[in-house]
Design a protein around this nucleic acid. Structure first.
Length: 934
DNA sequence: TGAAGCACCTAA
DNA sequence: TAAGTTAGGTGCTTCA
């Protein structure tokens, strides 16, 4: 009977001195499966010169690992080629033979004194990936495997000389697959998830070290439950009167053995945790080693094939692998998915789950552990909560959905996708498609070549950013190009395989503004453009199915799929300019961006000049007809591009009197149609939304009051880009204040109230009582990422100061990549030297530098906006010297109120925003005058 | 006093 | 066995 399952992981094992692929997965029936697939052989390609038959014979005779050398016809990786050339396909006995002999075969060239350049191809593809690519399988794909069931331990031992790794096998079922078929299934297998978290007893509250600091507790959280338990806590000591989910053990060794037993017995597909990739897993591994060295007996099996817990460190990065399962660390996933000020489990749980982490400070852990009453129970609950939170982050926030979809669409294994970036996905897709088109792919470049390319990359130019019409605008259309770079590549057949390098095609070529030449699709349809086209079609299809389905789960899977496809579509351009890519082409990357730049410039000119004006008549938008006479029932709308960045254009619509949202959207649709019609397929300018009001401050900095069509009505929201509200290196008070100002200015059109609000905030801060207002410190915290080692900084940095203080006080230096919170405290000297840890400031009542917050955090961003409205910004702050002039402040509200009433009356009578500008500047002056009068 | 350079973060 | 890309604003410090 064939067995259906979803592929979670793949690797190989040697049986009878031949490699056997192992596919690990979870079946629709809930059973974990291992499927053995023999008879797949490792190979790579060699481009050689001279008599290939002779070369082939020599290679076969020289290397005993080589099983077969064939002559095949292939295209080289880069450049348009009229014909294939002959290459050697070298098959070896074992996967590890490939890296071993790939350098050796190149030396044959010297032996033969052959001319030309020899080159190996596809010599560094992991064997499991080679298999998945060649068999059209991939991560999280459903397959139906036919074959007979086998005893995995006996099977692996047969003739392999006894692999020590297969004493124990943790799958529910194993089969020897004879036929594998990919099947369509829109569900996700009933995966088993668990998370775990360890608690160690550190010496003097510092960092625990696995040599000396014991692990005292391990907490689990399960989904679905394990033997009726949602959570489980293992203790490294005996204890009485514990809950059913607390398992006291004799000692640490027994606890660790229980941990591994539960690991295998539960048999999770997803091994979750928070920072466990960098901390818990390496710690357990090292601790087991330390205890074993002392003579303790621990059997640390975690893999589905009986393999042990372990990790590897590459520089700063730790990689852990658990055979047959997927290790998912919530920390990097949360980092990628959400822009937060801090990524401690505490901050993340609060922000995203609205749940509190419990806490036991490191210095008190020993006390809590040795207690037998409440404190001990608190410690247990603390451990339990940490495990729960890690799993909740992944499940409640559905963090894995996107990655599962990316695995399915790209064909890479889930673990690679969760761990890595876009590279592995793009390469998997390229390898598959190149293979089908008889084209080989280069190995990954070494450090030298990468460095060389990195230097060249400085002449890769990017997108075009149009100078914004700074200030306040009404009725702005937001349009953007749908998937600009991918559609450019499709429209112009831009590809590694179409760029003219050696062979010249007969007819015309495509010439991008950046230079270079590409053959048209009739001559050779580029591989990347066809991959993109395929992805684009898949995405359209997926979206169609989303509209059809009523099943909630299916909808979610489909939504994740279309999002994954979008990510993949946008990954190819970046990859082509990436110095460590297998296929790197500056000509290609530059062609894409240069078409992009000329496209947005053409669009601007088309809208400004060719369209220029649009005539609104009845309910239809028409182009202004030169000959046509216009009666009073027509309205002319003048169009001009107010801003644009890479793939977007903001079009300002001006006409006499108000324009309704419906009228503006008619214009938007019209522009979209006209511009799209002038472009090659599948490029398309899409009408996205209307900004009733827009404040453009600078390139990449603006705020919009947006209206988007939503089921037969309009939905409005404020969208802020690039300004301090969305930047994490400004304090919360800045973003709150700025948001209020933007809201008042954009939605209410009430600059006056915005000014008043700012004054209030400023005076609140100036009058801050640090002893009483400790909670406001929270709003004054700035954060910045520690991006490098101390010695690599050329200049002092505030967060570096704080990180070093932390190191002095606790002995622990925050690791690279950590966001460091800090506040600026009062005193003399440089800003960088006055940065301090907020906790320290709270505990020690250190005074805050109020003047800094007013002058450097609140005012500059607010001024940049209010200046646009002609507000005299010097009236916003009462300088610290004037703070003593209490009378003035007391009088202020009266003056304000009068002015405000006057203004709002005027506003009502005139109404448009243009006039407000004048009125507002008057307010500014009035205040200014009263200041002097006083 | 203002330009130059570093550092960070964001837009696309 | 680390890593998609460039464009651009702003603040702080140093130095001519």
């Amino acid at each position: 009977m064939p067995m259906d399952f979803q592929i979670l992981d793949a690797d190989y094992e040697i049986v009878d001195s031949s490699p056997v692929i192992r596919l690990f997965g979870r079946g629709a029936d809930g059973k974990s499966v291992c499927c053995f697939v023999p008879d797949f052989e490792p190979y790579f390609y060699l481009k050689a010169s001279g008599d290939l038959h002779a070369v082939a014979r020599l290679i076969k005779d020289t290397f005993e690992q080589v099983k077969k050398v064939e002559i095949v016809e292939k295209f080289e990786p880069v450049g348009y080629q009229k014909t294939k050339i002959e290459m050697l396909r070298i098959t070896t006995g074992l996967p590890r033979d490939v890296p071993e002999i790939r350098d050796e075969v190149l030396k044959i060239q010297n032996v033969l004194r052959a001319e030309g350049d020899w080159q190996v191809y596809e010599s560094d593809i992991l064997f499991r990936n080679r298999f998945l690519i060649d068999r059209d399988l991939g991560g999280m794909v459903w397959i139906s495997a036919d074959g007979k069931s086998v005893d995995p331990v006996r099977y692996l031992k047969a003739g392999s000389g006894g692999s020590s790794r297969c004493e124990k096998f943790a799958c529910d079922a194993s089969i020897l697959g004879s036929e594998l078929k990919r099947i369509e299934n829109l569900t996700i297998a009933p995966l088993k998830y668990f998370s775990f978290d360890i608690e160690c007893l550190p010496l003097d509250g510092g960092m625990p070290s696995p040599d000396v600091s014991p692990i005292v507790m391990i907490s689990f959280s399960f989904e679905p439950e394990y033997k009726g338990h949602k959570t489980l806590i293992l203790l490294a000591k005996p204890a009485d009167g514990m809950n059913g989910d607390v398992l006291p053990c004799k000692d640490e060794t027994e606890m660790l053995n229980r941990f591994f037993e539960i690991f295998c017995e539960y048999d999770p597909d997803i091994v979750a945790g928070y920072n466990h990739q960098d901390f818990d897993i390496p710690y357990i591994t090292d601790r087991v080693k330390a205890l074993t060295a002392k003579g303790e007996v621990i059997n640390p099996v975690v893999g589905r094939d009986g393999s042990h817990i372990g990790y590897r460190r590459f520089g700063l990065i730790t990689r852990t692998e658990v055979k047959g399962r997927v290790v998912v660390d919530a920390l990097p996933l949360v980092r990628r998915a959400f822009s937060l000020k801090q990524y401690t489990l505490r901050a993340v749980s609060k922000e995203l789950l609205n749940r509190e982490k419990l806490d036991v400070p490191p210095l008190e852990m020993e006390e809590h552990w040795n207690d037998s009453g409440k404190k001990f129970l608190k410690f247990v609950d603390y451990a339990r909560r940490d495990a729960e939170l890690a799993l909740e982050l992944i499940l409640d926030l559905r963090l894995l959905d996107k990655y599962i979809a990316l695995a399915q669409v790209s064909g890479s294994l889930l673990q690679e996708i969760v761990d890595g970036g876009q590279t592995s996905m793009v390469e998997t897709l390229l390898l598959r498609e190149f293979g089908l088109r008889d084209r080989v792919i280069l190995p990954k470049p070494g450090d030298e070549l990468s460095a060389e390319r990195y230097d060249m990359s400085s002449d890769l130019k990017g997108g075009e950013v149009l100078e914004p019409k700074k200030g306040l605008l009404e009725n702005v259309l937001i349009l953007d190009y749908k998937s600009l770079y991918p559609t450019i590549m499709m429209a112009h057949n831009l590809c590694y395989t179409t760029v003219v390098t050696r062979d010249r095609p007969g007819g015309e070529t495509i010439k991008p503004p950046s230079g270079g030449e590409f053959v048209p699709p009739e001559v050779y349809r580029g591989i990347v453009p066809s991959i993109l086209e395929d992805l684009l079609n898949q995405r359209g299809e997926t979206k169609k199915r989303m509209r059809r389905t009523s099943d909630e789960n299916e909808y979610r899977v489909l939504d994740a799929t279309q999002l994954a496809i979008k990510i993949l579509l946008n990954s190819f351009y970046g990859y082509s300019g990436y110095a460590r890519a297998r296929l790197y082409s500056l000509t290609l990357a530059n062609a894409v961006t240069s078409f992009g730049r000329s496209n947005i410039l053409n669009t601007r000119d088309l809208i400004n000049s060719d369209i220029g004006k649009i005539v609104l008549r009845d309910s239809a938008a028409l182009l202004l007809d030169e000959a046509g006479e216009l009666s009073s029932q027509y309205r002319i709308v003048e169009l001009s591009v107010a801003y644009g960045d890479t793939d977007s254009v903001f079009v300002h619509c001006r006409s006499q009197g108000d324009l309704s949202l419906e009228e503006v959207s008619l214009i938007g649709n019209r522009i979209s149609k006209i511009v799209s019609a002038s472009l090659p397929d599948p490029m398309e300018l899409e009408f996205e939304a209307i900004a009733k009001r827009a404040v453009l401050i600078a390139k990449k900095r603006y705020a919009l009051w947006l209206f988007e069509p939503r089921n037969s009505g309009w939905e409005d929201k404020i969208k802020v880009k690039g300004m301090e509200t969305v930047r994490r290196d400004w304090c919360e008070l800045t973003s709150i204040t700025l948001n209020s100002v933007l809201e008042l200015v954009l939605k209410e059109g009430d600059v006056d109230r915005a000014v008043e609000h700012v004054r209030k905030v400023v005076s609140d801060v100036r009058n801050l009582d640090p002893r009483k207002d400790t909670d406001i410190i929270e709003k004054l915290v700035l954060t910045r990422t520690l991006t490098r080692k101390t010695e690599s900084y050329k200049n002092k940095q505030p967060h570096l100061t704080v990180a070093e203080n932390l190191k002095k006080r606790t002995g622990v230096m925050p690791s690279i990549g950590t966001r460091i919170p800090f506040v600026i405290v009062a005193g003399k000297g440089l800003f960088v030297d006055r940065a301090e840890d907020p906790d320290y400031v709270r505990e020690h009542n250190v005074p805050i530098d109020v003047d800094y917050y007013v002058k450097k955090q609140i005012l500059p961003p607010v001024e940049r906006i209010l200046e646009v409205f002609g507000v005299n910004v010097s009236s916003l702050d009462f300088d610290s010297k004037q703070k003593g002039l209490f009378d003035f402040e007391a009088k202020k509200p009266e003056v304000k109120k009068q002015e405000k009433e006057k203004v709002s009356a005027q506003q009502k009578s005139k109404g448009t925003v243009q006039e407000e500008k004048v009125q507002c500047s008057e307010i500014g002056r009035v205040e200014q005058r009263s200041l002097f009068d006083f």
